[in-house]
Amino acid sequence: MTVLSSGEFWAFVGVMAGIYTLFTLGLQIQFGLAGLLNFGQVAFMAVGAYTMAILVVKQGWSMWLAAPLGVAAAALAGLLVGLPALRLRGDYFAIVTIAFSEIVRWVATNEDGLTGGSQGTINLRGEGVAAQYNSQWERFQGWLGEQLGIRSKDVVMLLVVWSVALLLTWLAGRLARTPWGRVLRGIREDEDAVSSLGKPVFRYRLQALVLGAALAGLAGLFYAWQFSFFSPDDFQPLITFFGWMILILGGVGRMWAVPVGALLFGFLFAATRFFDFPPFSYLDSADRAYVRLLVIGLLIIGLVLVRPQGLLGRRQEMVLE
């Protein structure tokens, strides 16, 4: 149980929760505001991370230029998916997003020349040379740590990720209360009614999708920086569903529910890591990983039964027709 009392471990849990906050904030804009069922959010995360890594390693770009391009590429991917797919009905759109996320993962796995293939970013320069996209970020982290007088890199990362996550949560909350956000919430309720009131529904949905995709791209950047290495396996569909769990735990439609849900989810995920007592100790580690997901799933089902609106949601909104 020594890990539990280690600051480093909890900083790591916090960083992951911050990254998931950014990731899920995108889903909150797409679903909580605009009613879009995006089950492929992880693809935009992958596009952001890969774009940055490829530009740094293969083109020799400065990370500070490559990073905004990663976000832009994720947004562009959102646009390219949305232009055809948002013309479909909601459930068909959802299927297209799942398919898109698997396509991105398969391309990343098989286009060795572009992405380093299944071995991941370490292989970006080809076999035998260990590629590295992270040195500029690490220098920045070191510099910032010095400025703040913090020695632990994990804590510096924690501060950076959460500063960005909280700032963007605040901005998204403000955006939701603008007339623009009002149109999106209207579309979530009844798109035909909103178009009968003179609003170009398609354009608003596209904007929501693109904004959410850009946030996933940003999450991808932090993910890449946190781990200094990633591979297509990091972008399993499961990640998207973690985002949805966070959304449901926190509450749909409220921006501040996202960091709350992400922290709770991160905590559940971390806490179930220490199932090393019976009966869990009779299982091997791979089985234990599944049991862990099972336990988290059950906990979430329990929470949803008690509070279907999530931690910060409004009950009344659940019962209106």
Partner: peptide
């Protein structure tokens, strides 16, 4: 519409402002 299409989880005021 034949059946009223209120935007149910928006306030009455926001329905009009929208």
């Amino acid at each position: 519409f034949q059946t009223a299409r209120a935007l149910t989880r928006l306030t009455v005021l926001d329905n009009v402002r929208l």
